[in-house]
Design a protein around this nucleic acid. Structure first.
Lengths: 149, 149
DNA sequence: GCACAACGATTGTATACACAATCGTTGTGT
DNA sequence: ACACAACGATTGTGTATACAATCGTTGTGC
């Protein structure tokens, strides 16, 4: 029943690799930095954005999660003291998620974990040519998938 | 703070592509075949395995979900009448998930959706060389990630 | 043969997530 | 100025998932 075509296998392997890689990094982050992968991604993004603050809905888009997902994610981070909420004085519909000093400290630790773990999972196995090929193909796939970037 | 290296971007794009692709196929499956992506994957696997039956834990491994996740997934499928459970007469610890005729019918519909949707998302955008490159790189990544395959 | 470890599946529980509904705020047409 | 649409965020709710504990079954050492 049309099994095993190269394109079907490529599709399968793509998801398999993504799942295995993020699963492994996830476990290591959970164990060594007490945070989930999405929490790390969020903090890392916040740490590298001007003013270390971002509007809730922009955060949701960037992390590819729902608006309510972003609300609850920030709830957890506020409870942990890593992020604070700030209202926009000019437009009271907007809420900023702002990285706190404690959050900056936390993300410094989680980034260390990523730097320690990711090379072994990913970077070290690929030559420059591999990376270039991978990005070329991923770029083609990404191009029309309404990614705002 | 060490942003934007090609390897970091490749990692990001890999997960982004996987997420966007499966998200889109997921929505289409939900809308047009009333099942989730993992449910389709499960039925499709079952439909192509000898005897259309598989041991629970093998199913979990294959789908890369937890054992309890597999139990609950099969619970749902049994409720829908698409899968039945059968005990192994020789080893009463083992449970088989078996595709029912109704399940075979359901997967025929969901496969149609996949065949209709995936080419536009994936296949059509890639040349044979793209697919070969992608699989070469993914293969490298997969090789040591204890994939039973 | 019996005690007990190993095994496969399930259940209890906590958590994360999406979708839909809702709340307060801001923009718009007349 | 007012009614109302649009907007951004949150809350209510249902569901999927994982981890740990447990249940019944099978294998093993003595």
């Amino acid at each position: 029943m049309n099994r095993g075509g190269a394109r079907e296998l490529a599709w399968l392997e793509l998801h398999q690799v993504s799942r295995l890689l993020s699963g492994e990094l996830s476990r290591r982050l959970e164990a060594e930095a007490e945070m989930s992968l999405i929490e790390h991604d969020m903090l890392w993004y916040l740490a590298n954005v001007p003013d270390r603050r971002v509007i809730m809905s922009a955060l949701a888009d960037r992390l590819m999660i729902s608006r309510s997902g972003a609300t609850r994610l920030i709830d957890r981070m506020v409870r942990r003291g890593w992020v604070s909420r700030e209202a926009d004085p000019n437009n009271r519909r907007l809420t900023y998620a702002v990285l706190t000093p404690a959050g900056a400290k936390a993300v410094r630790r989680s980034v260390q974990v990523v730097w320690r773990v990711r090379p072994g999972l990913f970077d070290e196995r690929l030559t420059d040519a591999d990376v270039a090929d991978l990005r070329r193909v991923l770029g083609k796939l990404l191009r029309r998938l309404d990614v705002v970037d």
